[in-house]
Design a binder for these strands. Structure first.
Length: 556
RNA sequence: GGCCCCGUAGCUCAGUGGAUAGAGCAGCAGCCUUCGAAGCUGUUGGUCGCGAGUUCGAGUCUCGCCGGGGUCGCCA
């Protein structure tokens, strides 16, 4: 549990504004104003700054500089802050006290695996659902992106004290599964010498042959001679088992993802719970019958069009099952919150789901993080990806080529809002220069420094951090202090890429420091202090890499 | 056509109203007899797609346009 320096400064601003308002008779707007504290781009402007005086200028009808001075004069004295200055046109700039900053080195080093952790989400049960790729084929690069994004979001939520369930929703019903069964049956026949033609709506890809081969290995020729329809019915669940239990689970593990629950959609279809939930929606007046089908009255709930929940043939749609699943998670299964990490191709579905959650009165406990597509480039050309046509890059192959750490970094480095281009050739050739290695190298270097120290009989025991007086040392500590602030932003914005950006920044600062400041040197006291500082950097790098799900090696 | 995302250095991208717009890669010039050169230092490179507006202040917010991607199914 670590107090954020940013919060400490913001509270001080709040206090100063309130006192000034009381002293000078400022109107109510002064107390209502939001205090925002930021890191100035220019270090000459201090460590933290607020533009609150500029914001108050208009409502108070006073010059911003005068307001800033009034705040400065009432800024509470503390051991944290060294100076408070006013800068035109009305900024209030705060500089942290060097001694306080140096002391944080001890705090961070001692916190270890507790550094940055918080209990603010304690007691909350949150389900994060991610990847949930169609179980009709192997996982490919396009639907991989949600994996690291959802996983890191889960890590951060758990780091903040929430009880997190990582869930994978398996769409194991519907016409796609029937098609898979037929496709496998045809390939099975082919394996026994029959000449078959693959219809346009079946899956022609190579992996279907792999599945048929697998079934032949396991069960031999016992399905030969059966009608195609019966073969398809028998093979569909077997194919799903192979794809989900052997392939998808294997790929998830390779990516470093450990799911708590693999939920099967088929558990819901045809269940009493499904019917009861539909009845509840009907009782709420959210459904209507039209053309023999059952519709959710989405338009009444603010969407553009209504959506079919149960088809005229009595079979629920994908949406119909998914909305029941969502309700089950938030009501029967007791999650306080459900976060879906979905690809851009589910945008339409997310709008329908929003209407459904509104109808249930659960909208405020559900959210969706939508990430944009990953486009795949091969030799500079954009490739279309289609599971049906068998055109896609297997995620397993990518991980095998570049490694888990680089693969995760690639998906985590940029905002989910931005479309990614994945060029395998480029990814492989550049992997030795990958930013992930840049960060890991900083960690390995630190391990090496401790190795050298041990050889020379030096340790951090008895370190006096007051000896850390170099400006570069204070800057490094301030970078460490930003870690909890970054977590705060990641949580507020569901933006895991900020963590990757922070890791890069911190590693860069450390590499710079390393060049100019010898840690294990001639002065034992100074060496001990610097070892403690390096320990604090190590602690922070481990926390960040751990949350990103990227290894923190001692050797590379 | 409606809705969602994006357009920032040659390339890949940070930057959710603040002060002089940043990093990595690529390019150029340097730095290893001392803790790991997968590193560091310096340097080249920008009409932040275009145009208006709001604001003390706009890469960031609003509107329009241009360009790219997604979505709008009794598919999943």
């Amino acid at each position: 549990m670590t107090a954020l320096a940013r919060d400490t400064i913001a509270s001080a601003f709040r206090a100063a504004v309130d006192v000034a308002a009381a002293d000078l008779g400022w109107p109510a707007e002064a107390r209502a104003v939001a205090i925002e504290v930021e890191h100035p781009a220019d270090p000459g402007h201090g460590d933290y700054a607020s533009a609150v005086a500029l914001r108050l200028a208009k409502p108070l009808r006073r010059p911003p500089l005068a307001i800033a001075e009034a705040i400065r004069d009432r800024f509470p004295a503390s051991e944290t802050v060294a100076s408070v200055e006013v800068a035109k046109p009305g900024f209030v700039n705060v500089r942290l006290a060097d001694a306080w900053v140096a002391r944080q080195v001890d705090t961070i080093a001692a916190a270890g695996e507790g550094y940055g952790r918080s209990t603010r989400l304690e007691g909350q049960r949150i389900q994060v659902e991610y990847i949930s790729a169609n179980p009709t084929g192997p996982m490919h690069v396009a639907n991989a992106r949600g994996g690291p994004i959802g996983d890191v979001l889960s890590n951060v939520l758990a780091f903040m004290g929430a009880r997190v369930t990582r869930e994978y929703y398996v769409n194991d019903t519907g016409s796609q599964v029937d098609q898979l069964g037929v496709s496998v049956a045809l390939r099975y026949r082919e394996l026994f010498g029959e000449k078959v033609e693959i219809p346009a709506d079946a899956y022609p890809a190579e992996y279907v042959i792999d599945i048929a081969t697998r079934i032949r290995e396991l069960e031999g020729d016992r399905y030969v001679g059966m009608a195609l329809e019966d073969q398809a019915k028998a093979f569909a669940p077997k194919a799903l088992d192979i794809i989900v239990n052997e392939w998808h689970k294997g790929t998830a593990r390779k990516l470093g993802i450990d799911y708590d629950v693999w939920y099967r959609e088929s558990e819901l279809v045809g269940s009493e719970y499904f019917r009861a939930t539909i009845d509840e929606l009907r009782a709420r007046g959210a459904l209507e019958e039209r053309d023999g089908a059952v519709w959710l009255r989405s338009r009444e709930l603010g969407e553009d069009i209504d959506s079919v929940v149960i088809r005229s043939n009595g079979v629920p749609t994908y949406f119909g099952v998914d909305l029941v699943y969502h309700r089950q998670c938030l009501v029967e299964r007791g999650f306080d919150r459900k976060i879906d990490v979905w690809g851009a191709n589910t945008y339409g579905h997310s709008l329908r789901m929003r209407a459904a959650m509104k109808a249930f009165g659960l909208l405020d406990r559900w959210e969706v993080v939508i990430y944009q597509y990953v486009r795949f480039l091969h030799e500079g050309e954009i490739l279309g990806m289609s599971k049906r046509r068998g055109q896609f890059i297997l995620l397993d192959d990518v991980i095998d080529r570049v490694g888990r750490d680089v693969a995760r970094w690639f998906f985590l480095q940029s905002s989910p809002d931005r479309m990614l281009d994945f060029d395998l050739e480029l990814a492989v050739t550049q992997s030795s220069e990958n930013p992930a290695y840049y960060v890991q190298y900083a960690h390995a270097r630190i391990a090496s420094i401790f190795g050298t120290a041990a050889e020379r009989g030096l340790s951090e025991d008895g370190a006096d951090v007051a000896l850390l007086t170099a400006p570069a040392e204070a800057d490094l500590v301030k970078a460490l202090l930003r870690f909890p602030e970054v977590l705060d932003d990641v949580l507020a914005r569901r933006a895991s890429h900020l963590l990757a950006a922070y890791a890069l920044d911190l590693a860069g600062r450390f590499h710079s420091y390393y060049r100019d400041h010898r840690v294990v040197g001639d002065d034992p006291a100074l060496s001990r202090a610097r070892l403690r500082l390096v320990r604090a950097v190590q602690v922070t790098l481990r926390q960040v890499l751990g949350l990103l799900g990227i290894s923190a090696p001692d050797h590379m």
